[in-house]
Design a protein around this nucleic acid. Sequence first.
RNA 1: GACUCCGUAGCUCAGUUGGCUAGAGCAUCUGACUUUUAAUCAGAGGGUCCUGGGUUCGAGCCCCAGCGGAGUCACCA
Length: 514
Amino acid sequence: MQLSEQEIIRRENLQKIRDLGIDPFPPEAFEVTAYAKEITEAFDDEGDKPNFQDVSLAGRLMGSRVMGKASFAELQDSTGRIQIYVTRDEVCPGDNKDLYNKVFKKLLDIGDFIGVKGHVFRTRMGEITVHVKELVVLSKALRPLPVVKRDEEGNVYDAFTDPEQRHRQRYLDLTVNPHVKETFLKRSRLITAMRRFFDDRGWLEVETPILQPIHGGAAARPFATHHNTLDMPLYMRIANELYLKRLIVGGFEGVYEIGKMFRNEGMDRTHNPEFTSMEIYVAYKDYNWMMEMVEKLLEYIAIEVSGHTKVEYDGKQINYAGPYKRLSMFEAIEEFTGIDISQMDEEELRATCKKLHVEVDPSMGKGKLIDEIFGEKVEDNLIQPTYITDYPIEMTPLAKKHRTTEGLVERFELFVNGKEIANAYTELNDPIDQRERFEEQVKLAARGDEEAMALDEDFLRSLEYGMPPTSGLGIGIDRLTMLMTNEHSIQEVLFFPQMRPQRKAEAEETEAEE
RNA sequence: GACUCCGUAGCUCAGUUGGCUAGAGCAUCUGACUUUUAAUCAGAGGGUCCUGGGUUCGAGCCCCAGCGGAGUCACCA
């Protein structure tokens, strides 16, 4: 491996620290008693006795301003940065000044972990600072960190911005770009809030198989794998719906799962091959109840994550306080095109598509044609949270037929900022109807539809034993996180988004070793 | 999968119509400095110009192929 000049110098510094009898990677725990954010927010030197007079902090050294016998430096811990003040004679009370003159001034580099003990004071310039009495090396960094600087007005210099490097080396991104950490803290708060909301209502968090012999529950191409001992193909799940419903059959009244799904399809700003979804099923409910539940859920999450029901996205204020506007698919199309398609047959729909300049192909059936019109003419207009209800039966094989309208199912999707973020049904629990719907899917598959659902005989058997009336909901956690954090790419809300291997040569070497 | 744009120092970026030894700021190194704030001042070092071919007297720049990324579209919950 070819080392850069800076890497060579850091390795030399590492050895020099060892030569001074200091372990640059000490095994002992270091007791932390205070954090940067806590100190900068709560330090009080107005009264008789300033607080934080005996603190111990640990973190990375992120820059230093050395001036002879006294220096200022930046310490960055898990909560943020704080200035530290280090003087030679306090850090080195005896005759040996090596710790200051050699270790601190020369051998420590940006990125090294150090621990400091001392008291907090305010400098003449007004900055809250830790006056260091003891300093220890906790871990040496051998590679130079990107150095991002900010001036008083908050202007950023030499930002670490290349998306490729940021995503491949997320640890660097997290270290030098504070906003990134904030996004992932919000993601975590979002999931925690959602879990608490469900747990408080007595619904049970469960886990269902990720490796599935039949990839059911959604329309998507799967990742295929193989189990050696069983000598059988297995698929990474594209959905967990059919397993969660089996648990409702088994007698749980409410079950939910937050977990990864895998779809072997294109990648772009809103799609990663693995993504996190939340699915919940509640017995004795229908989709009308579910709409009210989702309103409460999102309002709760918005407040927990950002403090308000109104969250800015893309320069727009999105208001998550319910109730949300509800439009049937036909009403929505009529609202944005002026055309009532509810009574049209396939030929009339085809003519309407042509009139609206919506591209179609001959393989599309009635449901697909309606979906195309909706996607082209309506979706982008649904900025504030809006429910679209009552979808054509052809595209929704797991939802119950509409209670009043022939040809529709009891389904809704929630749209925010023109994107679908939730999907829910009054679940189909009639096993005979369900079998017929699966058989339709099998016919589609025979016609070459790679995404048609497979027939799951065991799932049908479970329904035949009886499933209570149930409503189910799925929410894409990544996309909801994007909305709550004002991020525009799914890569910004995943720690490690999928990327191509960096070098072909390296990939070939790895293969050769196997 | 198609098209467009991008790839130069650890980081952010210049680099003219193809023309001397490829530049800047920060970072790094040497020195000065006991309250600094993007610390400052003086000096120094650091390059697989993404990779491989080609055109040319001469390529960071032009051509071809490849690798990686970003965007748009296609596909898709």
